[in-house]
């Protein structure tokens, strides 16, 4: 049973992530009164890309060649550390800081890969990505830290077990930290109002412009990693702050309940994202720090209210 759970745990993020992207795209199409592509379109895109040849810039070095594997690998590792459907699968890897910095390792290589080809777009994309991720990191750590203090552990896989939902004292810090985490999520996954994932305009790109140079398998991995990242943050958002339905044992029924409740909650997040992306405009780049400052203040207050 445990092995099976582990397999589900490891496979969950990479397998479900493209579906999430499909969901968002499809919802956005609906809001635009289109039918849009099918939910499975992201899988098809990836599959197609895996079967294409690659053209790599002659200026690129091994960083460019290895970055996709690291970016993808990092999301798989972190994906396996999350409280996806149960709080009983924990490894020392699930430490809050280990997760944050492992993700940062992926960003580090992605940004380097963006600069590697020498393209002007890639470089400016890297610069912007690193600017945002540098400022957002403090909020990222401290919002999860709020929950960590409430539950008495920084192991995010088991954090929810120590959290008794519904307790009145917990509610305010949790809500504040969650609000902050939502801003972190948008920033870290390059969504509105930080970045437009659908843009074709190089000058406004942040995340996408680092990928302009990739093709074939490597592009597939990068896009997949981005999808994984979105799912990872969504799972963190729902299962750390509102661990309703998450299994605290390894019984079949509670696991199934856990999986379905997670899927449901994540779906809600995605729906909100889709609505958000269809209704608001992208912010000016230099307005973004204000937003991150809001997140930061929320977090500080949240931690201060704990204990």
């Amino acid at each position: 049973m445990s092995y099976l759970l582990w397999i589900i745990q490891i496979m969950f993020v990479p397998l479900v992530a493209p579906l999430g992207v499909g969901l968002i795209n499809s919802l956005k199409a609906r809001i635009q009164k289109r039918r849009g592509a099918s939910l499975l379109q992201p899988y098809r895109n990836l599959w197609k890309l895996f079967y294409k040849d690659e053209v790599i810039s002659r200026d690129a070095s091994f960083i460019f060649r290895f970055a996709p594997f690291i970016a993808m690998g990092v999301t798989i590792i972190v994906g396996a550390c999350l409280p996806i459907f149960t709080s009983t699968l924990s490894t020392p890897m699930s430490d809050l800081l280990a997760v944050v910095y492992t993700l940062a390792l992926g960003t580090f290589f992605m940004a380097l890969a963006g600069m590697d080809s020498g393209s002007a777009f890639g470089g400016s994309g890297s610069s912007r990505e690193m600017t945002i991720s540098a400022i957002v990191e403090a909020s990222f750590i401290s919002s999860i830290l709020t929950v960590a203090f409430l539950s008495g552990t920084t192991n995010i896989a088991v954090m929810s077990a120590g959290l008794s939902p519904g307790s009145g004292n917990f509610l305010i810090p949790i809500v504040l930290a969650f609000a902050a985490f939502c801003i972190v999520l948008l920033a870290e996954t390059s969504r509105y109002p930080f970045d437009n994932p659908d843009t074709h305009l190089e000058l406004t790109m942040i995340h996408e412009s680092m990928l302009l140079e990739f093709s074939g398998k490597r592009l597939a991995l990068m896009e997949w990693a981005a999808a994984n990242r979105l799912l990872i943050f969504s799972i963190l958002a729902v299962n750390l702050f509102f661990p309703i339905g998450i299994a605290h044992d390894q019984a079949v029924l509670s696991v199934l309940l856990g999986i379905s409740s997670t899927l449901l909650k994540v779906a809600i997040v995605y729906i909100v994202l889709a609505v958000l992306e269809s209704t608001i405009a992208k912010y000016r780049f230099f307005r973004l720090p204000d937003l991150l400052l809001v997140a930061f203040v929320l977090n500080v207050v949240a931690i201060g209210l704990v204990l």
């Binding site: 199409a29 635009q32 009164k33 289109r34 039918r35 849009g36 592509a37 099918s38 379109q41 098809r44 890309l49 053209v55 843009t199 074709h200 305009l201 190089e202 790109m205 996408e208 990928l211 302009l212 140079e213 990739f214 093709s215 592009l219």
Partner: peptide, 19 residues
């Protein structure tokens, strides 16, 4: 656009010839 909506047939436009 919403009328033709070619995306629903699995066709989409990309920002780079690499893609």
């Amino acid at each position: 656009n919403a009328y033709y909506d070619i995306e629903r047939f699995g066709i989409h436009f990309v920002p780079s010839p690499r893609h």
